[in-house]
């Protein structure tokens, strides 16, 4: 088998099979160095000279930064109420401080742990049954040779991503609900009707199916870009050396997709405590708390609706900090495996 050697040679010449994608070393480093040199040149000069040169750029950035500060960072600071017994009538300044007691309550709150467990089992389930689908679909789409047909199919499968969750849940209800098409057909043929939309036992399948319908197509876009960036000479060389279709898939296509795959996996793992709020918010009542309560809906029903602000902020803070830790760990692991991860090791 000469194929692997061949590929290795190609790789060193082309800075990675993925061509355009971030490569471990090579051209990326040089580009970065050039950019830093340019930066240094720009940075020279006194503060006043730089302000005179850059004030317009600063002015342009102010509205966005202002909005982010107000609606992202101010609420972040607002999390201090997690350590208080906050009452809106008294305000943040005068509400009594209670230390960690909200967190202690949370640790003994069974419904909090139930919601956490639900969230994590849905994440795990979707990691196995949803996460690989966009890759498979992308490889399938990539194998459609006729460009117009391919563009058409892409257009169709991307589309549901742009529908709201209300719409998606409604469409599923019309297909699989108690008065939906499936029940209608079953009844016409003398069977008992089904109502998948209210069955807690199959709820995890239902939400995963909804997620697949809505987002599996859109998820391919990033893999299609990675596939397009793979150097076609690699395939040709491998084919000439006698590698079969499947071998080429295994030795060229999949390695070419790996950086993107790892990146998305990290993002998903870091986001493990988020399973999408609206989807569950909309279906929680129909299915019941036991199956459909996730962390976000827990916060809404248990605290926002009852006005237990401090308790809800504590739950949010726990979730946020846990999510942050998860993403940092996932990134560390990626670095250990020699992948780029989300941010660079500077």
């Amino acid at each position: 088998m000469a194929a692997p050697d061949h590929i290795a040679v190609e790789r060193s010449a082309d800075a990675g099979p993925a061509g355009d994608l971030p490569s471990p070393a090579g051209s990326g480093t040089i580009r970065r160095r050039a950019r830093r040199r340019a930066e240094d040149r720009i940075k020279n000069g006194s503060l006043r000279a730089r302000f005179r040169r850059d004030w317009q750029l600063l002015l342009m950035t102010v509205p966005a930064i202002g909005l982010l500060l107000l609606f992202h960072y101010v609420p972040l600071l607002g999390n201090v109420i997690a350590f208080q017994d906050y009452s809106p009538y008294v305000g943040v300044k005068d509400s009594p401080w209670v230390g960690m007691s909200n967190f202690q309550w949370l640790m003994f709150d069974e419904s909090f742990w139930d919601a956490t467990l639900n969230t994590l089992s849905i994440t795990t389930f979707q990691l196995i049954f949803y996460f690989p689908l966009p890759i498979l679909l992308a490889i399938l789409l990539d194998s459609v040779v006729r460009p117009r047909l391919r563009l058409f199919i892409q257009g169709i499968v991307y589309m549901p991503h742009f529908f709201s969750w209300v719409l998606v849940v409604t469409l599923f209800q019309q297909m699989f609900g108690g008065a939906g098409l499936l029940a209608q057909i079953l009844r016409d043929h003398g069977f008992a009707g089904v109502d998948i939309m209210t069955n807690p036992d199959t709820f995890i399948l239902l939400v995963t199916a909804e997620t697949v319908w809505k987002d599996a197509g859109w998820g391919t876009i990033i893999f299609l870009a990675a596939l397009a960036a793979i150097n076609p000479h690699l395939y040709e060389a491998a084919a000439v050396d006698g590698a079969s279709r499947w071998r080429r898939l295994w030795h060229i296509t999949l390695p070419g997709l790996r950086p993107v795959f790892v990146l998305l996996l990290i993002l998903r793992l870091g986001d493990a405590l988020n399973v999408g709020f609206e989807q569950f918010f909309l279906q929680r009542d129909a299915v019941g708390r036991d199956a459909a309560e996730v962390l976000d809906t827990f916060m809404y029903w248990r605290t926002l609706l009852t006005g237990e602000w401090s308790y809800g902020a504590a739950a949010g803070l726990v979730k946020g900090v846990a999510g942050l830790i998860l993403i940092l760990i996932a990134n560390k692991v990626a670095h250990r495996f020699g992948e780029q991860g989300i941010y660079k090791r500077s």
């Binding site: 609606f71 101010v74 609420p75 972040l76 999390n79 902020a313």
Partner: peptide
């Protein structure tokens, strides 16, 4: 610093309750 401020919002959401209160 401004870019950092933007990128940091990826890592940590503001939270539902404080956003509502704001």
């Amino acid at each position: 610093p401004m870019l950092f401020l933007v990128l940091l919002t990826f890592l940590f959401g503001p939270g539902m309750i404080p956003s509502y209160l704001l």
